[in-house]
Design a protein around this nucleic acid. Structure first.
Length: 518
RNA sequence: GCUCGGUUCGUAUAACGGUUAGUACUCAAGAUUCUCAAUCUUGCAAUAGGGGUUCGAUUCCCCUACCGAGUACCA
């Protein structure tokens, strides 16, 4: 029986999604779409303590921005689907709303001897843990200690029954089998084996809030939602044996999903995984979208920094995966076509901000002048510049190759909109000498008197020919003119600038520099 | 500490036992141009260390080192 591919991205709404999370979502999405399957978003909000308002909305918005749209979990408007329907028989997709379904599964495990009730309070366990750590030991709630603790394995049945009824702070723990080698297969890492003797008895369900922990909720929901592959972060690899055992305990091994554990994204420098702090420290975003936390602290986002979503998705895809060819630029569609888990890298990928910028630059050059103009116009307006669309399109056509972000456009050539009022001292001293500017002013007269086609192509050659035929020093003359146009000696070609700003403005700038520098 | 993963130029990666160890980003130099940018060309630069297996190891095995993750009534 072949099942329809169904994968899920299951974030916890405890804060903004970081780029590593987006990558996990992306790989899930690519995998699903390639196989004509479903991509599901499930919100794992079983930790009421750490819930952060707005985080869920942020996650959905971020994925939408990337073009990662779920088949289930969220409707077209970005709302989590809350009731089962013909289209969404697996709803709801928020674990907090699935609360009633978990307890029976946990109890089922107890009945069948795979789990037990535990009455130790958090305080008791913390104290025990602290005590052992003080002696350089680690406390594990598991096979070596469980019989000496307070649980249904070692307490009289009557007492257990009474505590179950009178107290509300007990938990259900998984009874980790002793000395068993769990043999697992990972789609990325291959065969992995772990002996259960090193594993502890994880809490599966908490009476206090009647909520499952990740492990239980995850297995139950993946089963109920008919998930076929679980593609998630490497931090879950150590709990894979527990998950295997859980499928076994429930008798669901037949339909148990296959697992793929993705390596983590590492800091660009130094040690450790990429964190929010690195972005602030090294000057790049770690989040897809800007995020403001409860304290009012703002973390920058790729979107707000001027990255195109296509570039962001592309660079994320290439961080830990490669197609085996030398192609580096991929649209989402192309990624869907070529992605494969077999080619996902096992080792952690260090993020490189320079490469990220390169991707954006490549995408920027691919954009049409018209599209880029749409983006640049508002920026100009915000600077109080009043220019026609036609004019801005010409500007964009001239400078798009030089930019990494649309926001660079302004810095590259503000002089195409505003006349310089100040001149770079060093450049002026170098070029604005009498023997140069007298020639440059004559060249300016030539331009003003030029009656051919007033375009870069039409003016460029005749102007150069004129200067050359007079045997004037080309560089010095041109740089004097550029100084007048730009305010310095770095910028576009003279013919480009002059034909763009027009003869009138050109004349004005020449007059201005004369009044200032001559 | 213990358990599990990982280790090719600075970074991302290619090479599924046989290559002068390739490519991209970064950096440097040159070409070009009226400057800058762009572009083109060239260059710098790597198999963590040690043992095996093999005619031959980047590739397979073992040890060490280093990195990462996990070790919660968090996910």
């Amino acid at each position: 029986m072949t099942r329809k591919t169904r994968v899920r991205f299951a974030p916890s709404p405890t804060g903004p999604l970081h780029m590593g999370g987006v990558r996990t979502a992306l790989y899930n999405y690519l995998f699903a779409k390639q196989r004509g399957g479903d991509f599901i978003i499930r919100i794992e909000d079983t930790d009421s303590q750490r819930f952060v308002p707005g985080a869920e909305k942020y996650i959905i918005e971020a994925l939408n921005w990337c073009g990662i749209v779920p088949d289930e979990g969220v409707d077209a408007a970005g709302n989590v689907v809350e009731t089962p329907s013909e289209r969404h028989p697996h709803a709801p997709y928020r674990q907090s709303q699935r609360k009633p379904i978990y307890r029976q599964y946990a109890e089922q495990l107890v009945e069948n001897g795979y789990a037990y009730y535990a009455f130790d309070t958090a305080e008791e366990l913390n104290a025990k843990r602290a005590e052992m750590e003080a002696n350089g030991q680690t406390f594990i709630y598991g096979q070596t200690t469980r019989m000496g603790l307070r649980n249904s394995l070692c307490m009289p049945e009557a007492e257990v029954k009474e505590l179950l009824e009178t107290r509300t702070d007990w938990t259900i723990r998984f009874k980790m089998p002793e000395n068993r080698v769990v043999k697992m297969d990972d789609l990325i890492r291959g065969h992995v084996e772990v002996n259960t003797s090193t594993l502890d008895d994880k809490v599966l369900w908490k009476r206090a809030d009647e909520l499952p922990t990740y492990h239980l909720a995850n297995i139950v929901d993946d089963h109920l939602m008919e998930i076929t592959e679980v593609i998630r972060g490497e931090e879950w690899l150590p709990s894979l044996p527990l998950h295997y055992l859980l499928y076994e305990a429930f008798g669901w091994t037949e339909t148990q999903p296959r697992f793929a554990h993705l390596s983590l994204l590492l800091k660009p420098d130094g040690k450790g995984k990429l964190s929010k702090r690195d972005g602030d420290r090294l000057g790049f975003p770690v989040f897809p979208l800007q995020w403001t936390n409860a304290e009012g602290e703002v973390s920058r986002g790729y979107r707000e920094d001027g990255y195109f979503p296509e570039a962001f998705v592309n660079l994320l895809a290439m961080l830990g995966w490669n197609p085996g060819t030398e192609q580096e630029l991929f649209t989402l569609e192309e990624l869907i076509g070529t992605f494969s888990l077999e080619r996902v890298i096992k080792s952690g990928a260090r993020f490189n901000a320079d490469k990220a910028k390169w991707y954006n630059k490549e995408y920027l050059r691919k954009k049409s002048v018209s599209e880029l103009t749409d983006l640049y116009m508002p920026i100009l307006e915000s600077k109080g510049i009043n220019a026609t669309r036609e004019y801005v399109e010409k500007v964009v056509g001239l400078i798009k190759e030089r930019a990494t972000f649309v926001a660079d456009f302004w810095d590259i050539a503000p002089y195409l909109f505003v006349a310089p009022t100040e001149f770079v001292e060093k450049d002026a001293a170098k070029f604005w000498k009498e023997e140069n500017y007298t020639l440059a002013l004559k060249a300016a007269d030539f331009i003003l008197a030029f009656d051919g086609e007033f375009t870069p192509e039409g003016l460029g050659a005749p102007l150069e020919e004129y200067i050359r035929s007079n045997e004037w020093p080309m560089g010095k003359v041109m740089n004097c003119l550029r100084l007048a146009m730009v305010g310095g000696s770095n910028g576009l070609g003279i013919a480009d600038i002059v034909t763009l700003i027009g003869k009138e403005e050109f004349a004005r700038r020449i007059e201005y520099i004369k009044s200032k520098l001559c």
